[in-house]
């Protein structure tokens, strides 16, 4: 007597289909969790890069400001000596040869020449404008430009990237809601009978499909 192969009833096949869909929903849920974790990590990296760029920028500004004003102060000292020297030379020329002021002024002039020479050693004429003033803004801008070649000084792009990935994480986790809804509907489809069973099955399948579509769309939009 031959054995007849076990045939599944339509109700059993329906149950198997529901079980498969629940399993798919669970797997998609796991993928969503994985992608959300990766996105959250990228957001954290963006924050870190932004804070590092802020630190670079602040340090560059502080260092260049301290150096710029030191250079400006040095230039002022040079300029004071230069003005006094030229004024002394002018006054000496106007002084009668026999004036008893002459040796005093000559000594003062020698001192001023020495002072001027001393300050002149470290002067950078590139930052001195035609009108004799010191260009602090150019000094600081040049130092900042030099620093920008070696390190990131602009935190805005990194912060924007961090925010984009944080938004992506939130959207991915929002995908969990249709997936969880699909679980609810498919569970109802398993428990309920007849008309309700088909309706909840359709709703569950739609929720699952929308979850999958959302996941793919989000992944394609924000990379």
């Amino acid at each position: 007597m031959g054995t007849e192969p076990n045939r599944l009833s339509s109700s059993d096949r329906f149950s198997v289909l529901i079980a498969i869909l629940i399993a798919i929903s669970a797997i998609v849920g796991a993928v969503v969790a994985w992608r959300a974790a990766v996105s959250d990590d990228r957001a954290g990296d963006g924050d870190f890069a932004g804070v590092a760029a802020t630190l670079n920028s602040a340090r560059t500004n502080a260092t260049s400001a301290v150096n710029a004003f030191q250079a400006h102060a040095q230039y002022l000292q040079y300029r004071e000596a230069f003005l006094l020297r030229t004024a002394l030379e002018r006054d000496l020329l106007a002084l009668p040869a026999e004036s008893n002021q002459r040796p005093i002024l000559e000594a003062e002039l020698r001192r001023m020449r020495d002072v001027q020479s001393a300050y002149e050693q470290n002067l950078d004429y590139r930052f001195i404008r035609r009108d004799g003033t010191f260009d602090v803004a150019r000094y600081m801008a040049e130092k900042r430009a030099d620093a920008a070649r070696a390190q990131d000084l602009n935190p805005a792009p990194a912060f924007a990237e961090a925010d984009a990935f944080r938004h992506k994480t939130a959207m991915l986790l929002a995908t969990g809601i249709p997936l969880a809804l699909s679980l609810v509907f498919l569970t109802f489809a398993e428990i309920l009978s007849h008309g309700w069973r088909r309706l909840t099955f359709v709703l569950g399948t739609l929720a699952l499909l929308s979850g999958i579509v959302m996941l793919i769309a989000i992944e394609l939009t924000v990379r």
């Binding site: 939130a170 986790l173 969990g176 969880a180 679980l183 609810v184």
Partner: peptide, 9 residues
């Protein structure tokens, strides 16, 4: 489970 996914969000 549905509530958990909402609270996780």
């Amino acid at each position: 489970t549905l509530a958990i996914s909402g609270i996780a969000l």
